[in-house]
Design a protein around this nucleic acid. Structure first.
Lengths: 205, 205
DNA sequence: ATAAAACTTTGCAGAGGCTGCATCTTTAGC
DNA sequence: GCTAAAGATGCAGCCTCTGCAAAGTTTTAT
């Protein structure tokens, strides 16, 4: 009758995840209430019931506690991208890869809505959210270059990835400003459709 | 025989510009040599022959000394955008606005090549370069919304602006990685043409 | 020319972000 | 249980950035 534990993690790793989550949510909650500069690391740590020093064992920066875990998202996106058959055009492949990420986001809607609210009110963080993608972006560019077989100095891979990223970003912001009403995936599809159509001026439609 | 001074600035403003430029170039040079974390504000200030305290009278942040003057670029872009007749589609209007900015960049090629080299090696700065645009972007979104007459909650303006920004960013990085060989304006036009065509997969052409 | 006004530079003190190191506690594996 | 690895904590210290007040300099008005 003993089922496989869905999480083969020991108590130690469980506690780590727990502490990390506690710090992240405490940070988001406090910053949402008071603003970025009115919250110190010490206050965040206290809210999560750990020492201030421990905070920096989990996040290299105060900001990093607010923007989530870009590495996880990157891995997810890369795996999803690799799963799309190479015959598919790059833009469509990226749309599918991002759909994966977007599903994850909508699964944690509560958390992500709070996060996006905080992020749009503090452009420094928006920057950080994008720069977390700077690493991601490079990986995606390489993947696209490989799948299209283009020479490594071609402009296309970097351009598609950057544009697709722009579509994802605006979709997420739009989703958050509507307080999560509606499907994020649908917004993303709309955005990608508009891009694939060459962004025609809507007046002339 | 007294000609009009081409710069109607007093000695005070001239010195301010001079100091600002000295700080910015010193910062870029030092960071290019040693890396972002191996340069302190005190060293930058010393290289520019002012006190460390004065540095912060010019730039709110060490990073800000490296990314240039986004406000100036924003104003230029907005003015250029306003000058494009409203019948032109939004994407084309943005292309022309950015051409203005790009001309300015290529005018200061030396400085901008150094800046881009520094920026690509420090994603945090890339972030800052983009976030300087976060303010710019909002202004551009409003301008596009106004010129297209779309409802303020429409997704289109934010999407075109973000995508156009992505095209600008990748073009500038591409230009810098080729050490400024070739015309930045030409690269930008290529990128915008690809976007306007819907980013078709280059293999199927 | 001179004095007042306006602005800049600078030093100082201090808060907060962040790191390295040593120590102590908890957990995992035997 | 015992030992070794890993995490948590405290502490000292550097750096970024800000407010304040004391110079010093440029501009303006007389």
């Amino acid at each position: 009758m003993t089922r496989d534990d869905p999480t083969p993690l020991g108590r130690r790793d469980r506690k780590k995840r727990q502490t990390r989550a506690a710090l992240a949510t405490a940070a988001l909650r406090l910053v949402a209430e008071r603003g970025l500069d009115q919250v110190t690391v010490e206050e965040i740590s206290e809210a999560a019931d750990v020492s201030a020093r421990t905070f920096f064992n989990y996040f290299p920066t105060k900001d990093d506690a607010l923007v989530g875990d870009p590495e996880a998202d990157r891995d997810r996106a890369l795996r999803a991208l690799a799963a799309v058959p190479p015959e598919q055009p790059a833009l469509e492949a990226l749309r599918r890869a991002f759909t994966e990420v977007v599903d994850e986001v909508q699964g944690d809607a509560e958390l992500w809505l709070l996060r996006m609210r905080v992020v749009v009110q503090h452009p420094v963080l928006l920057a950080r959210l994008v720069s977390g993608n700077a690493v991601t972006e490079q990986a995606l560019v390489s993947a696209v270059a490989a799948r299209t077989g283009l020479p490594p100095d071609d402009a296309y891979p970097a351009l598609v990835v950057a544009v697709a990223g722009a579509a994802l970003r605006t979709s997420m912001i739009r989703w958050a400003t509507c307080d999560g009403a509606g499907s994020l995936a649908a917004l993303l599809d709309e955005a990608f459709a508009a891009v694939a159509a060459g962004l025609p001026d809507p007046r002339t439609s």
